[in-house]
Design a protein around this nucleic acid. Sequence first.
DNA 1: GCGGGACTGGACAACGTTGTCAGAACTGGC
DNA 2: GCCAGTTCTGACAACGTTGTCCAGTCCCGC
Lengths: 331, 331
Amino acid sequence: MKDVAARAGVGLKTVSRVVNGEAGVSSDTERRVKEAITALGFRRNDSARVLRKGSTSSIGLVLEDLADPFYSPLSRAVEEVARAHGALLINGSSAEDPEREQELVLALCARRVDGLVIIPASDDHRYLAPEIDAGVATVFVDRPPGRIDADVVLSDSFAGARTGVAHLIAHGHRRIGFIGDQPGIHTADERLRGYRAAMAEAGLEPADSWVAPGSTDAARVAADAARMLDAAEPVTAFFSGNNRVTVTLVRELAAPARAGSGVALVGFDDFELADLLAPPVTVVAQDPADLGRNAAELLFRRLDGAEDPPRRLTRPTRLVPRGSGELPPRL
Amino acid sequence: MKDVAARAGVGLKTVSRVVNGEAGVSSDTERRVKEAITALGFRRNDSARVLRKGSTSSIGLVLEDLADPFYSPLSRAVEEVARAHGALLINGSSAEDPEREQELVLALCARRVDGLVIIPASDDHRYLAPEIDAGVATVFVDRPPGRIDADVVLSDSFAGARTGVAHLIAHGHRRIGFIGDQPGIHTADERLRGYRAAMAEAGLEPADSWVAPGSTDAARVAADAARMLDAAEPVTAFFSGNNRVTVTLVRELAAPARAGSGVALVGFDDFELADLLAPPVTVVAQDPADLGRNAAELLFRRLDGAEDPPRRLTRPTRLVPRGSGELPPRL
DNA sequence: GCGGGACTGGACAACGTTGTCAGAACTGGC
DNA sequence: GCCAGTTCTGACAACGTTGTCCAGTCCCGC
C-alpha cells in the first residue's frame, strides 16, 4: 500500500480510502490510485485489516468428516449462508476424536473467526467457555454441547426412530434388531431410546441380543447382523441407527447367503440411490442441508447482536416408505 | 498479551517466549506467566502473528461443490495433508461459475493463504499471475488451468473413456450413446475425445444424435437418453461422462417404461452402492482422494521451496466391470 | 577481586492496515 | 478582500505480535 501511495504520489490514507470505496476522494486522485494499484498488482492484506478492525469475516466449521455424504451437504449449506453474509468458511474434520476437535476449535479461535459451527465429537465443551466469553458466537449442530449452554440445532432423533420402529411393528414385526452408532453419541442414544419407546408402546420386550450399538465399522455391523439373523429366534427386521450402518446392512442382506431372506429394514438418514435398490430402502429422512442452514442462520443472528438466551431448535424427520420397511415378517 | 505481562510482572517479550515455547525463560518465570495466561483466558491472536511472520499456515481450496460426492473425498484428502503440515483449510464452492471462482480465489489471496488448490470453473486464470508472482503456491486439480502455467493433477479422462467405450464395443455394442458434461469443461471434452477414439479404432462412425454433451441436469440427461432410445435405430449402450449423469441414467433405465430393456451402461466415476444396483454398474473409476492427496503434496513441495518447472501429473483410471457394462446388445 | 561467558529479561521497532484529527485548498457570499 | 463552510488530503497512532539488540545478573575460574 505504501508503494501504491508513493507511485500515485498520494498519502497512505488516500489509498486506503480508494481501496475501501470510501467517499471523499476526487475522481482524478481515484484514477491515479487505481492505476497504481493495477500496475503494482496490489491486493489488500486482510491480516492487517483484521488486526485493525477486529472482525475476520470468517466462520469455522468443525465436523466429523467432510467426506461423509451426510455432512457434506450440511457443510455446503453453512457455506452458502456464510457467503450471503460475506464470510468465508474454514473447516476441519475432527474424525470423531475429542482431542482433535478441541485442537481444531482452539486453532480457529486463535485465528479469531467470528463464529463457530460445531458438530461435537466431545462431550465436554467447558474448554470453550473463555472463548465464548471473549465473544466467539458458537452454534452446535446435530448433537448438543457437553457441560456448557449454547445454541443448538438438532434433528428429532428420538421421534424419528420411534416412528421408524413403529412402522416396522405396524407391518407385523415383533423381533426387531437395532444396530446403531457408538453409545455416548447423542444421536445414537436418542435413536436407541426411540427404538425402546416404540417397542415398549407395542408391549414388546426387546431381547438384549437384538440391541447392538457400537462402531459403524462394516465388519462390526456385519457380525452383529449375522448374529441376530442366525439366532434360534432370528430377528425379522432391522432398524439401523445411521446411513453408514444402513449401507452395510443393505450390502449384507444382498449377499448371496441372505438373498431372498426377506428381512425388513428401516434406516435412519436418507441416502442417494436408496430408491433404486432391491427392495428400495425405507428410511427416516433428516435434511442435513436444513440443519446446516438453520445453524448458520442462528450463528449470524448472534453475530448481528442477538442477546437472548441460547435456543434449542429441533427439526422434524420424515418417514419415507419405499419397500424394505413394508416387507412382512418371514419365519 | 500486555495484560498477561502486567499480571505476571514481566515484559511483553517474555510472555511471547513462553507462548511459543522458546528457550531462555527460567522455570519460575515460566510458571508465573502460564498462571497469568490461564487466569486471563489468554489466546494468542494469530492475525497479528501472521502480520508479523508473513505466513498464515493455511491453504485455500476452491472447488465446484463441497457437497458433490466426487469432490468431498478430494477435499478431505487435501485437509489431511494440510493437517500433517500444520495448516488449516479454507474452502469455497464456485458452483461452476467463473466469476465466483475468481472472487473466492482473490478473497483467499487477500487473506494471504500460503497456497491454493483449485478445481477450475474458469478457463482463463491470467488473473492469478500477479498472485503467483507474489508467492502464492498454486496447484490445479481435476482440470488444467487456462492460459497460465502451473502444477496440475489430472485423471486420465481420455484413456479412461476410451477403455470404457472399448469395453462396450468388445461386448458387441455398435450403437453407443455418449451423454456427458458441458463442452468446454476439460474432463468432459477429454472423455468425449476418448469415446470418439474408441469408436474410430473399432471402425465405427458415431451418429451425431448419439453424442450429447450438456448440463448434468436430470431433465436434460433424461430427455437426451429417451431420444436415443426411442430413435428408429436405438442405441444399445450408454457411456456416461460423470457420476451425476450415470445416476440419472440408472434411474431412467430402471423406470417402469424401460424395465428389462437391457441397455448396457458404463459410467465415468465410481459411486457408492454401484455394486448393489440391478444390474450392478460397470464404471471407469478414478480416485478423488488420490487426486486431492497428490495435489496437496505437490503444493507443500512448492511451499517447501521446490523451484522446478510446473508439473503435470496424470493419474490412471481403473475399469471396474460389475454387470451393466457386460450386457450384450439387444435389438 | 575481576574478566568473561551464560543466562534471563525487556525496550523498541516493525508488520500493513484503518480511525482520528487537523490542515490545505477551494467555493460562495458579503 | 475576507470569512465561513465544504471538500479533499495526509500525518500519526494504534491493532497484537515477534525479531533485534542491549542490559543486567549470576557463576566460574584465575
